[in-house]
Amino acid sequence: MTGSPDPASLDQRLDAIARLPFRAKFHLRGRERATAELKGPATIRWHAYDLIAKRLAPTEPYKDGKQTPYRGHPVFVAQHATATCCRGCLERSHGIPKGRELTRAELVYVVNVICRWIERELAGGDGPGPARPR
């Protein structure tokens, strides 16, 4: 994994992942959306970096496959939407192998994927009501 992908390639990856029925149902709503709007992109990026470093980056994350809640923080919702919720999903959808610690470049990549998804969600205008058709 070399360098950070540009927004266009991140968007292509996110569009492909969003076509998977399980991933497509995740959207920022309610408390998680309000948190993302209130805290702003810089704080959310820091939260994402911290959460990924602790919960996903280790060689064998604690409770891997069950370590990411479905709600409670916009980063958690984004992780499920972007298939960055556990090492198995990370390997299947992003080609980052299990069984070793994430490199710094991989950690930054995962954070960029999560933050780009959140940015797109906030720009999309989905409010707390039902999801708009995509």
Rank of each mutant, 00 (worst) to 15 (best):
F26Y: 10
G129P: 05
V77R: 00
K25W: 12
T103I: 00
A105G: 02
K39T: 08
R29Y: 08
K63Y: 09
V113L: 05
L122F: 13
Q79R: 15
T59E: 15
E32Y: 01
R13A: 12
A8P: 03
E101I: 08
D50E: 15
G65M: 04
A78W: 02
E101G: 11
R134F: 12
A34T: 12
E121D: 05
P41Q: 15
P130G: 11
Q67C: 07
L107S: 04
T84Y: 03
R29L: 11
D64K: 05
L28Y: 01
G124S: 13
L20Q: 15
N112D: 15
P133W: 08
R55L: 13
E60K: 13
T103A: 00
P61L: 04
C86R: 01
K66N: 12
A123N: 10
S4F: 03
A81C: 12
R134C: 13
A8H: 07
G124M: 09
V113P: 01
A48W: 00
P69Y: 10
T103K: 00
A81I: 07
R92Q: 14
R31F: 13
W46H: 14
K98H: 06
S93T: 11
S4W: 01
A42C: 11
R132I: 14
C85E: 03
K39G: 07
G72V: 04
F26K: 01
K98C: 07
A123K: 13
I114Q: 03
P5V: 07
A57S: 14
P130N: 11
Q12L: 11
A16H: 09
A18H: 12
R19T: 14
L102F: 01
I17W: 03
C86K: 02
W117C: 02
L107K: 05
G88D: 10
T84S: 05
A123T: 12
R55N: 12
P74N: 08
K54F: 11
A123E: 12
T2P: 08
G30H: 07
Q67N: 15
D15R: 08
